[in-house]
Design a protein around this nucleic acid. Structure first.
Ligand code: SF4
Ligand code: SF4
Lengths: 144, 144
DNA sequence: TTTAATTCGGATAAATTTGTCCGAATTAAA
DNA sequence: TTTAATTCGGACAAATTTATCCGAATTAAA
């Protein structure tokens, strides 16, 4: 479904969002621990999210990553996914014909597009804030 | 979404199904041409589908692949996908926690499972026969 | 029986994704 | 000003997926 990089990116964003709600800036090391991901690889992904204005990063001691409080609600999963995996979810298709072309659809097109659109809609309407609440209550998890 | 191998497997199955309805057995070479896929790689995939009783294969001159007419309607996309990608569609999940565990769900679980189930249902109720009709009429395509 | 067409199946190679390493740049605090 | 903590960023390595190659096995037809 999503690439590994994207999975890490989503988990990291959720964790950072949760901490940001309490005005805490978190370090790469802490994030990687909390989401159980390889540190150096996670660094690249966070960097990419920072470049895309999804995260705010600060170097130096007491540095780390944070999300503006206002943005925790405004940022949707679709933003995170797009920053890492690009538009593959929107254009990437069931049978991988070179370019999607509604005029020359593959046999699966109609049925596939329905699912793809629901996924798209779900990503676009789910904010980071939505995903933090369960975590905070201890009923959802980012690692086991 | 699906692996490349799976995409080729689906396209090949649809093409073979279409020809099988006219009692035609088709060769690897012809299939690869019709679905625009690398020949040798396609061979492995067809082989795997044959081992899983989705295709019937015959060696030697005038050999090739075919699907029993009765099976064209009985075979669902889910069978093809399962033979190649395994149960990743059923168990593979939004954030890739090691094992899916409803008791310790990731934050995305509820929203993700809805989509995953719809995909699953679509694959389980779509037969190869369903996918051949448009092809036959020239309104859907396996390559461009 | 010989030949040729074909799938079978293993070894290997190329491409992509995932992951590691390490030094440079930045910055807060000592 | 020095030190140490941190992100930045490029080079590299490992793992996985995708793809190629080639000989063996099978089988229909010449
Ligand atoms: S025709 Fe439909 S399923 Fe095929 S590539 Fe385009 S959108 Fe995807
Ligand atoms: S908790 Fe839900 S989304 Fe997470 S791995 Fe399990 S099924 Fe998938």
């Amino acid at each position: 479904m999503f690439s590994k990089a994207c999975e890490y990116g989503i988990k990291a964003s959720i964790y950072i969002a949760l901490q940001s709600l309490q005005d805490k800036r978190v370090s790469l090391k802490e994030i990687a621990e909390e989401i159980n991901s390889p540190v150096a690889f996670t660094a690249k992904i966070l960097h990419q999210l920072a470049k895309n204005d999804i995260l705010d990063s600060v170097k130096g001691p007491a540095g780390g990553f944070q999300i503006e409080k206002d943005n925790v609600e405004k940022l949707k999963l679709s933003h995170v996914v797009f920053a890492i995996d690009g538009d593959s979810i929107y254009s990437g298709c069931g049978l991988g014909l070179e370019k999607c072309n509604e005029k020359q659809p593959c046999p699966l097109h109609d049925k596939f597009v329905i699912i793809r659109n629901e996924l798209k809609q779900m990503l676009e309407e789910t904010s980071l804030l939505d995903l933090t609440s369960g975590l905070d209550l201890g009923i959802t998890f980012l690692k086991r």
